[in-house]
Design a protein around this nucleic acid. Sequence first.
RNA 1: GGGCGGCUAGCUCAGUUGGUUAGAGCACUUGUUUUACACACAAGGGGUCGGGGGUUCGAAUCCCUCGCCGCCCACCA
Length: 895
Amino acid sequence: MAIEPKKKLADLPKAYDPQTVEQRLYRFWEEGGYFIPKIDPNKRPFTISMPPPNVTGALHTGHAITATVEDIMIRYHRMKGEPTLWLPGEDHAGIATQAVVEKQLAKEGTDRHKLGREKFVERTWEWVRQYKHRIQDQHRRLGVSADWTRERFTLDDGLSRAVREVFVRLYEEGLAYRGERIINWCPRCMSAISDLEVEIEDTPAKLYYVRYALEPIAGEAETQYITVATTRPETILGDTAVAVNPRDERYKHLIGRTALLPILNRPIPIIGDDAIETGFGTGAMKVTPFHDPTDFEIGNRHNLPRIQAIDFDATMTAEAGPYAGQDRYECRKNLLADLEKAGLLVKAEEYTIPLGHCQRCGTVIEPLVSRQWFVKMAPLATPALNAVRYGLIKIVPERFTKTYTDWLENIRDWNISRQLWWGHRIPVWYCDNGHMTASREDPTACATCGSTQIEQDPDVLDTWFSSWLWPFSTLGWPDDTPDLRYFYPTSVMETGYDIIFFWVARMVMSGIHFMGTIPFHTIYLHGLVRDEQGRKMSKSLGNVVDPLEIMDKYGTDALRFTLATSSTPGNDMKLVNDRIIGNRNFANKIWNAARFVLAQTDGIGGGIPALEETTPKTLADRWIVSRAHGLIASVTQLMEEYQFGEAGRQIYDFFWSDYCDWYVEIAKVQMQGDEARESTAGILRAVLDLSMRLLHPFMPYVSEEVWQHLYEGEEARPAAALIVAPWPQADLAERNLSAEAEFARLQDIITRIRDARKQMEVEASKRIPVIVAAHGHAASLRAQAPLIEFLARTEPPRIEEQLSAAPEQAIALIADGVEVYLPLAGMIDLAQELARLDAEIVSARGDIERSAKMLENEQFTSRAKPEIVQKEREKLASHQEKLAKLQERRRELGG
RNA sequence: GGGCGGCUAGCUCAGUUGGUUAGAGCACUUGUUUUACACACAAGGGGUCGGGGGUUCGAAUCCCUCGCCGCCCACCA
């Protein structure tokens, strides 16, 4: 079989162009089935459930970092040979999606009520079907190697069944209950929302002092008043008491009396309650049980009536008397004016209040009493707490463990009903006789009385009620499927730290409760992506960075590598354009190195050896092979420790500095002779190959493309594609530390010569003579002479152990125990050279002093580890040797 | 009110069991059409590691304290 000739240098474009590569390779991977795990009962799988993005959303940097970090883990484990499943999907996003569709309807001059529930839901499905592809395709652009054949949607049939099963079970266990509670109400969404969906913002406002007249009692000549403080005067209209602390000497005599509500003149009792802080405001507090959580509690304790003064749409109810129908803020304004007129407004103070807003629409939340469904969380929280406490689940970074446990220890019941149409409808039916039936299948009659006059609860469940089941519902639960048996529990839950409560903690609770096992053994939390100024990205600020634009401009790999290396786990990062450009350049560097290596080694046999199959012949060979072993070991360990940023950085440094700047340059020399030609070609290819493997999780496209070119026409292939090529194995026994030290000396010599040339302003192209007094390293250095010649642009160096006479008219460089002379007759200014030597002498003396001082310290020599002390002794000796040589040189030059 | 994080070169960030003279990229200075890459190569300048105190032979790293900046949680109206 004819081996196709490798592509010549000229055949590949000079600059790496991501656009011509990415789509093609993604299709190649997806159509090749590489994203689909092969179930092997003898192997433990690696599984990640992808956090399902909102169907209506467009890809943003949050998705980009999630996708990047997860794909890094997925590709790494896949290359390690584990059956690897990354299960993707989307979330129906109840409120968000409904809001989008409602907005669309508004544009068409209609609304959901005119349309009716059924039509509205159908309309929303249409929208979803249309837009789901957008987020999928955008995810594909990021290179996510997820198994799209297993993709799920939170509102699909299977997951709806899971949701229903869970609800009914919770109901049967008494953990799902319906009750009249004070909840957070969004007057714009016209729905209850959970505590977590309220965003509190400190807002400058006013604290109004309002006095309430007391109903006169016998013998009271003048009207008495009691003054209360409030930030929401409109709630006065719903007051049903005034409360004071029973120990408050100023007021305790008033307990039991009756106050008259301003304007409405409704009589309300004055009560005593310990919740009242004597030090705040006047020490007397108005009580509005319907519209305030604290007041609700007080109302319960004292059996106060609840009066709804503010309606669900934030206008005033009939209870508000003259203000009925007014918007809550309009009412506030009018009421304040009226109070002022009546002389009841004592004063208004500047005051900052924590104001709750709807997470979705930003509308100010109105706390009010409503009948809703709740989940009793405390019984679910305890096992979830223990799972982390006893190490069954590890959180990375660890500090978030505290956030997690604090929340679970103080958990409150979860309001799960939403007054929306888009979502999982609550599977509860009510009959005429006031019975409830919760059922897995739609019932035809009341389970209690058999009445057929039943009606389903109109509400739907919180979006998170389906997401919290994600790790097992997506694998087929409640059915006992092969996928569920094989892939559950999943491995790592990777997401942003901002949804620990919303999602992560709840998944742990549901996993343990319904599956009997934790849903994942590791929680990895990444930080948030911010703009260049460190601000949160938001549409209103106009600072949203579009990942698609970045990928268009710089390529997916550049974006991914930047996201992976710009921060450490759990810490926020700024997405800085210069960094993206730098990583685009890295991709190009890789491309060009590969282009060169392919051309350079074209026609030379030996294939692409594994690192341990290479035959290092030269110092540089032994050095790069040793470094490569070290790199593999280090990167592998970092991957296991979730230190992806550091792993990426190490690959970058190795590839660019060690491989490109040194080894590839040296290979140009080594390839000229016959004796090292084939071995050098082998090492060039071997290191390129392993670099692409290590890099693949981070920069999948350029690495795969290069790898495919590398193996083009090769008969022996370790795999059909890099995406499934084996992760490189390190052998630390192959580390050659003496070769690394010897090579470091060579690098030192070369760098010093280059520096001296620059300082002496030697023309860049001019070759200069070099004489080396090697002091025991002559044999080794002679072998490297061609490298010095090539890399430092010198004439063939003359290398001796000792020099009978030191060269005159020469620059003297002391490099790692070796004297290097650059005879530059006519170019050297003696005074200048003396000054240079003096500066070096001063620096050497400083080094000696520092070392000597340490070693003279008996505390140091006796207490520090012996190897540290030994190292310090060697250092001192080397500095002293250097000083001696410098001083000798100075004497020779006379001075 | 409680908790967490950040403060390291002009900028963006690394620095994980404490161990020389603290690193990278960008920016800056200087030079270079050297057998891939100017999205490059070579050389160089630049940091009292937020302040103070302590532990230690030795601290960017551990402890205490203060100061900014940011985030999370929390029913003082």
